[in-house]
Nucleic acid binder design. Sequence first.
DNA 1: AGGTATGTCAACCATATGGTTGAATAATGT
DNA 2: ACATTATTCAACCATATGGTTGACATACCT
Lengths: 112, 112
Amino acid sequence: MNAPALPDDRLDMVFQALANRTRRALLRRLAKGAEKVTSLAEPFGMSLNAISKHLQVLEAAGLVKRTVTGRVHTCALEATPMATAEEWLSFYEEFWNQKLDSFAEFVEAEQE
Amino acid sequence: MNAPALPDDRLDMVFQALANRTRRALLRRLAKGAEKVTSLAEPFGMSLNAISKHLQVLEAAGLVKRTVTGRVHTCALEATPMATAEEWLSFYEEFWNQKLDSFAEFVEAEQE
DNA sequence: AGGTATGTCAACCATATGGTTGAATAATGT
DNA sequence: ACATTATTCAACCATATGGTTGACATACCT
């Protein structure tokens, strides 16, 4: 049920990989299905090389798996490391819930 | 209930802030209660200045709130931005659950 | 065999990161 | 008044990041 707890340096890499909107967009893209590098790169106003590098970052973080068939590299989402990241974050749920609750109360009180 | 959805560049900053084990450790520390900079810095094998910078990163990301009383800066955890990060991640839950389930099945089958 | 498509590698550039040391600012204690 | 404590600011350093361009290696098509 709970994720396989990455070591600290892997968690560094995962959060680092997520700390860029282009890479987050790539992951969202891959959530709809595996795709090859060129077609992944197409919608971004950026060189193919740049996207290639981003994909390498994602791959190093374990968030993307690559299958090479001939000259075409097919990238697929590998979400499991995110489970560890989310698990790390979930530790703080009580804190933000508390905050959000008191904000909700405030709004409610305001409406008298 | 759902978090106030940070803009992309704020989310960049939050994930970036989390992409460092020292900063994650600082947050864990602050989860136990607010503390001043010097005492926060003490257990890390690192200069006070380094910690001061890390705290600035956390503050810029909105993960730490600072209250200055005289010369002492008290830092407190501000977890709400993490809610947005977790929300972003939760989109992928179905993907990793699927993976973890099939792994569980594999283990089960293995034990015949 | 020759040309085209897919993708990486290598070098470069500007800026950011994570750390250091040393000096500066401001509040407290004696 | 003077020393001490708390903390930041400034400059520096090495390395990482996010992007570029140009060249290269393969695979596919005719």
